[in-house]
Amino acid sequence: MIRAAAVAWLILLVAAPLLVVFAIAFAIPDPGLPPFRLPIENGRWVAGNEAWRVLTGDGFYLTALGRSLVVSGGTAAICLGLAYPMALGILRAAPRWRPMLLALVVLPMSAGFVLRMAAWMGLLRDSGPINRALLALGLTDAPVWLLYSDAGLMLGMVHSYLPFALLPLLAALAARDRAPEEASADLGAGPWTVFRTVTLPASAGAAVAAALLVFIPAAGEFVIPEILGSPGSLLVGRAIWQEFSVTRDWPLAAAASTALLAVLLPPLLWWQRLR
C-alpha cells in the first residue's frame, strides 16, 4: 500500500507534469485563457509544430541553449575546483573544529537566496564597495562594469551552487579509506602526488556526481542571470520564463523546456548511475 501511494505521488507530481509539457509543446498558441488550444479539431490531430519551427528556425534558442550549457559547465567546473580543497581542508582540520566548519558552509545557504543576490547587487554596483576599493587603490580610473555582466553572473552562480558540490563531495571523502594515502606518503610521495595518484582516482566518481549536481540544475537557472547578468545575455531559463510570462507563448515555452530536458537527459542518467 505504501508502494502504491509512493508510485501514485511520483506519477502525478513528477511523471505527469513532464508528459504534459511534452504534449503542450505541440499545442497551438491562442489568445484565450490558458493561452493555447490542443491541436485537435473535429476529433482529428492537426499537428501544431509551430513551436518546434520557431525553436529550431532562427538561431535564438540554439544560441541560448549553448550559452546556458557554457555558463552551467563553467559554474560546475569552478565549484568542483573550489569544493575539492575545501572538503579536504575540513576533513584535515582538528575533529572539534569540523562541526563548526560544516556550519559555516551550510549557514550561508539558509541566509535567503534572494537576499544573498541583493548583497551581490550592492557589492558589484558602480558605486559599490568593490569599485570604491579599486578606485581608492588607483587600480582603475573609472568604475569597472561588474553588475549586469558575465563576471557578476558567474560570481553569483558559484556563490549559490558551491555548497551543492561541496556537501556530497565532503560526504564521499569523509567515508574514504585513508590507508592507501598514508602508504603512498610513507613511501615518499609528496602531498600533490598523493592527491593526484591516490585521492583523485579513488574519488573521481563522487567528484563527477558533485559536478553534475551543479551542472544540471544550473543549466536552467533564471533568477541569478535576471538579477546579476547582463540584460542582453541569452540563457534558456530566461527565454522559457519570458515566453511563459511576457510573450505568453506557452507552447513555445514547453517546447524549449522539452529541448532543455532532452539535452540534460544523458548527464541526468549519468548522475543517477554514479549516485
Partner: peptide
Amino acid sequence: AILAAAPLVLPEVVTGLALLLL
C-alpha cells in the same frame, strides 16, 4: 528511482512550467 530523484536535479524552470501546465 529516477522519478524519485528527478526533483533534486531538474532545473526549476522546467519543474515549474511542468507543474503549472499539469
